[in-house]
Design a protein around this nucleic acid. Sequence first.
RNA 1: GCCCAGAUGGUGGAAUUGGUAGACACGAGGGACUUAAAAUCCCUUGGCCAGUGAUGGCCGUACGGGUUCGAUUCCCGUUCCGGGCACCA
Length: 942
Amino acid sequence: MAKEYNFREIEQKWHRLWTERQTYKVVEDENKKKFYVLNMFPYPSGAGLHVGHPLGYIASDIYARYKRLQGFNVLNPMGYDAYGLPAEQYAIKTGQHPEKTTFANIDRYREQLDKIGFSFDWDREVRTCSPDYYHWTQWAFQKMFNSYFDEELQKAQPIEKLIEKFKQEGTWPTDEKAQSDLLMNYRLAFLGETMVNWCPKLGTVLANDEVVEGVSVRGGYPVEQKKMRQWCLRVSAYSQRLLDGLDTIDWSESIKETQRNWIGRSEGAEIEIPYTLSKDGDEAGSFTIFTTRADTMFGVTFFVLAPESELVDKVTTPDQRAAVDEYLKYVKSRTERERMIDHTVTGVFSGAYGINPITGDKCPIYIAEYVLAGYGTGAIMAVPAHDSRDYAFAKHFDLPIIPLVEGADISEESYDAKEGIVINSPITPDKSVEYDGERLCLNGLTIKEAIAETKRFVKAHNLGRVKVNYRLRDAIFSRQRYWGEPFPVYYKKGIPTMIPEECLPIELPQVEKFLPTETGEPPLGNAQIWAWDEKNRKIVDKKLIDEAAGIYPIELYTMPGFAGSSAYYLRYMDPHNDQALVSNRAASYWQNVDLYVGGSEHATGHLIYSRFWNKFLFDLGVSKKEEPFKKLVNQGMIQGRSNFVYRIKETNTFVSLGLKDKYDVTPIHVDVNIVKNDILDLEAFKAWSPEYATADFVLEDGKYVCGWAIEKMSKSMYNVVNPDMIVENYGADTLRLYEMFLGPVEQSKPWDTNGIDGCFRFLKKLWALYWDKDGNLALTDDEPSADSLKTLHKLIKKVTGDIEAFSYNTSISAFMVAVNELSQQKCSSRIVLQTLPVLIAPFAPHIAEELWEALGGEGSVCDARWPQYEEKYLVETSVKLGVQFNGKVRFDMLFPADATPEQMIELATSAPEAAKHLEGMDIVKTIAIPKRIVNIVVKPKT
RNA sequence: GCCCAGAUGGUGGAAUUGGUAGACACGAGGGACUUAAAAUCCCUUGGCCAGUGAUGGCCGUACGGGUUCGAUUCCCGUUCCGGGCACCA
């Protein structure tokens, strides 16, 4: 009896031994080089893990194990992003505390993860909802509150420095409330009265990245704009550093591009525009416009203000007042969503005129919703000839259009491109206003030159300034929810005040109900023990609130999801430290994440917030690197592959795919777990649902063939494949191999169980190499054959290169080839066969351990050394090359391996096979590509 | 509209970055072993054409051009699919 590959026994055994031996425990060791591998930690949802989750974890685990085999001290931790809406909504429905459901889900995740055999160091697990974790989330928030961004130093500084500055300038107010209000404009975490995305259905505000097309990402509920007092993080202060940092990190170009778009840097000019309240009136004031196209100053024919702009009131003339008010009413009535979808031209004349400082022309000032209050200055100069939105507006209101680019046809649409030669700037020399004896003239310049020249002119004559604008907005940092980190803040006579650092963490209070209170307060309004006793430094019953006694209300908002996930990678370095977020020693050792693996859907959320948060902590000296994640790999999504059965209408008869066109059928989703290779398991189908117990079938070739489609993996489509099933039937090693074999890690692909047998067969073949017919080890101490050594070293070379390049599917192919070759060579040499377990260990750790142990290896295969390939085994004594004439391969021949290109050409042209091709021909050119081909270009003799 | 990434057999995907396209796997077909099934092993498998046959020829990497002795790879144009941003001045 040959020894069977009993994956169940093997995997159970090694899970036990790994735990007993603490194989994956990692400690800082300054004598070893570190490597930090990280997965985006999961939100533990009630549905458990599906096959899409482990994809990234397996990919990073392979890399982590590989690095360990190379002698690195590898940190590969795992934890849970445990705060979140689903648990809270479940709590509202059932009254069950979200902590309870969350912990239950975590246990289930852990159980599933353990089956797959990851090399996580579970001693370092973090949970964002645990007080000793969010202690440091609250701490970081307080640090941000007590910091401001110094524009000159381009970094965060203690707020005391700013107070000092105000005192020196003599602008420091004496009133405490005024002091607080002043500093709020500078603090990195601040309370701001801003337009927020308010979602009435969820009863909370949302960040910009949580809203897509006017509805909430979670739930898809409508979102409206509302002015509210909210905690914000001054992410925008770091815009330039967030942008610059992108050039220093090894992330995919598309993610970096997405972030660049999100940050939205645009370089332009702010120009002062004086205005009058009638065509011939005197100057009544001025406003500032922002433009990236300073070169088009000569084409301005009107100005536009955003309806929300504070200037609207000032520029509206009495006789236009009624029309303007009506327009503002109309704009207010429109939701964000309507404004986004419907781009019809609307607007109203304000009655005032702006004076173009370059031409001296007076142009009407309009109010229109196509100009946004939140970007630039909320006011623009309109150049209809060269901006499509201005063009549409000008056509609609019949305003003049002045072309400024040579040859540009603007009869049908504007010419927006920044290419061409400038004309009409000015039309006549006297159309350019003279400043200090200089008149601006752009005619004949390219647009790029003209932009630079105008900026220079504007700056030189003090008409405005060069200005960089960013689209990146400050992040709204408070939520009206229960299941999140409470703010360590109380309101002392209305002034937000930090609870002392030593009193942290402020634990989430117990509440009876998880809904907002009847008075409209957030859920924390339900908490009874939720007031701060300043003198005794503790949380007390809110009935005791009394300013005189120094007992004040505590903030009722909680922090958003990204609060806990923004610095968790630092916490893994030192997860049990109760004195600091991370010790200096641990932070100095682990530095930052070398390899980060996760989905690209976090491009404008987590991956921006984390970078911001880390940059702040870097300024503080807590984090040791400016960028948190050196290399980022985005694993693709695993889509579902649904199966269908076809029921003949109004019957309980199901017809196989190939015959369905002959009947009138309804396709019905069928559970993919009772379908194998698209063949339906009829008995399982009958048992699946009582409705089908009596089903009849129309078969083809005795089988029922199901249809299929690629869809999102979801419960309702019965296409969810969970890893437990695969582990049960094939083992964790097969699952790991197959998930990687499916295709490149970065690529999205449907989960299709059809190919899994190939990986399972491979492991069985590998296993079979080691055992004889009687189940004994079949190894000999014979010298390996040259062929076997070549196979082995070819494999080492290929696998090493492929892992480095994250090309796991090709390295698995290489294993398959090598095992087939060794099996054909009947290789039984210990020298060759004891290397294989080490090579396969990152991919299939269980079988690797078992073989390693059987071969008498020391300890765990995890501590073996990754083999080096030797060129000498790969060298050929002779090489077979194709000889081609005029690019077509004509014959193959053998060359000495060390032949020079010249010698190869010589040999090829004198070979007998070449004679007939050379007959009557002249050799035009000869090329020899080493190890590839000898190319001879011929043409008929003239 | 702007930006980014793609398109290779029946299927998932390879191709050392300009050098014999289709590795590896699945599926399919044929065969061996077996009372039978499972498991295992072997052969064939991009298309078309010629040949009893070994084999030979032509066409083929979304489409149309170009550079090159040689293009899946580089350049220009077109179509289609995916992703991001979007009245951002």
